[in-house]
Design a binder for these strands. Structure first.
Lengths: 132, 132
DNA sequence: CGGGATCCCATTTGATACTG
DNA sequence: CAGTATCAAATGGGATCCCG
């Protein structure tokens, strides 16, 4: 009964807090510049370290290495070592990563829309300079 | 005709790249720890600076100030000064922010699901310690 | 209340070189 | 190829003080 609306800030405040927490939890594990992009890069199948690095422009080997470890710890990615000759190592998404599909798809869709908007000169954003 | 699949890495590589770029564009403007959370905090109406700060646990005044400016520049938020006495300042989402709904909702939903999973002890994640 | 300015530390990152 | 080691540089972010 913590939140009765006797006249406090707003009745929906509690709901908003729970949303903020949920978003915080999500961002904790998949936030940051690279995480989602790595998952996207792996989304059409196994890939090797250098393949991933080439796919994601701007990421360094060190950062990629660290992020892959984190993603593995959190159950999004598995690392497999194939001992056939020559030895190769491949990263692959786990089924748990699939639960991110709605997030990733909506993000990509929004990104495409946003790019269109920027290219039509809507706001004064120097944003996409580098990408263009 | 850049990508004919004469035998390259994979035929869907080009598509994957465009997804990665779209995601990159999106993350460029709404990435980071705070952006989306601020938008969520404003999603049920105008709010004042200190209200927002209280809603988002862990954010400092300086960071909030900077993020709000960025969000304003990029067209997600408007800052309104009410000159009635006493003067008050309120932040409000623009209609453009509404286009983020699918992203935000899927993120929140995933976050809730993820939390459940963590609390059942699935992976060895020390992740949510602080939130709990 | 709504911030801006400053200081200062900690973490992140980039670049480069190196290794099994 | 798949990373690791190391150092320098950039960035982030807290603390504090201040102002209108």
């Amino acid at each position: 009964m913590a939140f009765t609306n006797h006249n406090g800030p707003r009745p929906d405040t509690a709901q908003c807090y729970s949303k903020l927490n949920a978003a915080g939890d999500a961002l904790y594990v998949i936030g940051g510049k690279w995480r989602l992009r790595i998952i996207i890069a792996l989304s059409d199948g196994k890939r090797r370290f250098n393949e991933i690095q080439r796919a994601i422009s701007g990421i360094s080997a060190r950062v990629l290495s660290n992020e892959l470890k984190e993603l593995e710890i959190n159950g999004f990615v598995t690392r497999k070592v194939y001992t056939d000759f020559p030895v190769s190592i491949e990263y692959e998404l786990t089924p748990y990563s699939d639960t991110l599909s709605p997030v990733i798809e909506s993000l990509i869709e929004w990104g495409e829309m946003h790019r269109q908007r920027i290219m039509q000169g809507e706001p004064a954003t120097a944003a996409l300079e580098e990408t263009l």
